[in-house]
Design a protein around this nucleic acid. Structure first.
Lengths: 344, 344
DNA sequence: CTGAAAGCGCTAACAA
DNA sequence: TTGTTAGCGCTTTCAG
């Protein structure tokens, strides 16, 4: 095994192989205009010296870092982690690294991050912003010279983006509950300043409209995707006399909060309350009864995002922004009960 | 808002402010030997031009990238994600970015990654290797000129490391089951070529020895930390006539597999089988009954790792490698039953 | 086909 | 206190 005792540069290789640095560079970059003879000599020298081209110097010349940033609110959310995993896999195959950054849903951090990254540190950004309307955030995005791919966000700037079809999944879920004779269905979901919250609400309302059903505003709780919000709203919903018979928790953390609240109130799923969750997690399968969910393929989302990024990076800026919509899947399991009596 | 239409360099700033590039550099780096007057002028020029110092050029000079690599088998494992999150937070506060890479527990990928990173792309590595004895992996680590912090791994090279005290947690768990009159206790855990698997087994054995208990080898299944392994071994364990009365699943994915197997066999926890898991996940709290677990503070692990890294990076290589052992916590919940009859 | 040389943007001597 | 300049390691003309 070669021991790269001290950092060695292209110069050392050149000296060792008795060629010029330019030639070494050509060999490294697979330039075909080098004779077999010399390629061999240089390659040998590279191996013997354990030479590795310095990334900083390269990116300084080429203006490419071969790394992309993955910016989300919280990488420890298993969903983001899955997307990150998938993104990394596809990007790695193309010689890219993934830098990741948490914003903690903090507006200022998001803005700061944009400028921190836009210094030749990464070639592009995979982004999930916390507020699609915030002028400062939009300003930061506009000011960035980097290609950006949006993850499930819709803003006023025309960018590459990959979306999930929350709306139709939600619609199916609400209709399903209706068919089980539920008439008081509650929805807990994220803020309306983020696409997932808006789309889920839209699907929920669409279902009601199509069904000719009345829509009870106090049964809709939109605010945040946090577990805490899920807990509080579920608790509040169920503590009232006129409680819903079913809850749709529109967000994977919200589900955890909802279940916690249901437990605490000593209610049973689905006998006392029917529950539908979002996204596949350990919870959905391993809960007893298993959870009926609106799911999506995180792997596919990451793959799509990675592919779009690669496309943009190789085809330049003239490309029309790609918008990819990925489906959701409504998976019926055991967490919803059929109601016998017609509740109006 | 300043629009950085075209990339502008230190030179442009110098021209604009009527000073030399050296002075601009001094201002950027907060060198105190610059007059107030000029600092203001340069700062103004920087703001007006929207100048941001190029990271590649800087790291080429300073030999520091201000980014560290986080290398694990699978970032989508919620535990790693939590550590990553915590690491990122502490490192970010010190101006560092985190690059992450999945190895998928693939030996070759681990080795390749080391050389891919050791090109001035990162300043240090946070590492979890898949096999502590593999000579090629060890070779790769030795060959690396980068500071490395090991996460819960023990190898023949003296490096910074942070460990979890799996052993004592496991011991407590086994003793607890014994006190509940369990006499056939099974352990499913990871490979013995990784520290967690070894330590968990050691704790398990220690408990038996201290208790003067016989030790049934076929009740110990060590192999992998995957959910699939957890499923298969649990299934196998429970399908036999002479089945254990309790299972300890030593690994967070193993728990998921174990529960799945138990469900499939239509067994109830804890009436038919007692179960102890490892690490806090949604599962542990939200399962019914909630899971008794050997837990640890992932946040603390990430913080410790980040701090050690920072220390090494600022104090240089002469420092004696730090070894930090973080505790585990045995949390009793409802997944273990007390046996009445003495089953010898 | 190969070598020489000019930078990429920045920092850090060394001068002034 | 400020300006000048020599590189950091590499790629890429431009000659030869």
């Amino acid at each position: 095994m070669t021991q790269p005792i001290s950092k060695c540069t292209i110069k050392d290789v050149a000296a060792r192989a008795n060629v010029s640095v330019g030639t070494v560079s050509r060999v490294i970059n697979g330039n075909p205009t080098v004779s077999r003879e010399i390629v061999n000599r240089v390659t040998a020298a590279i191996v013997e010296l354990g030479f590795k081209p310095n990334a900083a110097a390269r990116s300084m010349r080429s203006n490419a870092t071969k790394t992309i940033a993955f910016v989300v609110s919280d990488i420890s959310n298993p969903l983001f982690a899955k997307i990150a995993n998938s993104v990394e896999r596809i990007l790695k195959d193309n010689g890219f690294f993934v830098l990741f950054a948490n914003t903690g849903n903090n507006r200022d951090r998001e803005i700061k991050l944009m400028t921190l990254l836009d210094v030749g540190r990464v070639d592009a950004i995979l982004l999930t912003v916390s507020d699609e309307k915030d002028p400062e955030i939009l300003g930061g995005i506009k000011a960035s010279r980097l290609p950006i791919v949006l993850l499930d966000r819709e803003i006023d700037i025309d960018l590459d983006a990959v979306f999930s079809d929350h709306r139709s999944g939600m619609k199916k879920a609400a209709e399903y509950l209706w068919r089980l004779n539920h008439r008081r269905i509650a929805l807990i979901t994220g803020s309306l300043s983020e696409r997932p919250g808006r789309e889920r609400l839209a699907g929920f309302m669409e279902a009601h409209t199509d069904l000719g059903a009345r829509f009870s505003p106090d049964l809709v709780r939109s605010g945040s995707l946090s577990e805490e919000f899920g807990f509080q709203e579920t608790y509040d919903l169920l503590a009232h006399a006129d409680r819903p018979t079913a809850i749709i928790a529109g967000g994977n953390r919200l589900v955890a909060g909802a279940i916690r609240a249901i437990r605490q109130l000593k209610l049973r799923i689905p006998d006392d309350i029917s529950l539908i969750g979002c996204d596949e997690t350990d919870l959905s399968n391993l809960l007893d009864p298993p959870l009926t969910v609106i799911a999506r393929d995180m792997e596919a989302i990451g793959r799509a995002a990675g592919l779009i990024l690669l496309r943009r990076l190789s085809n330049g800026a003239e490309l029309k922004p790609a918008k990819v919509m990925l489906p959701t899947d409504f998976i019926i399991r055991g967490s919803c009960a059929e109601l016998s009596g017609r509740a109006t």
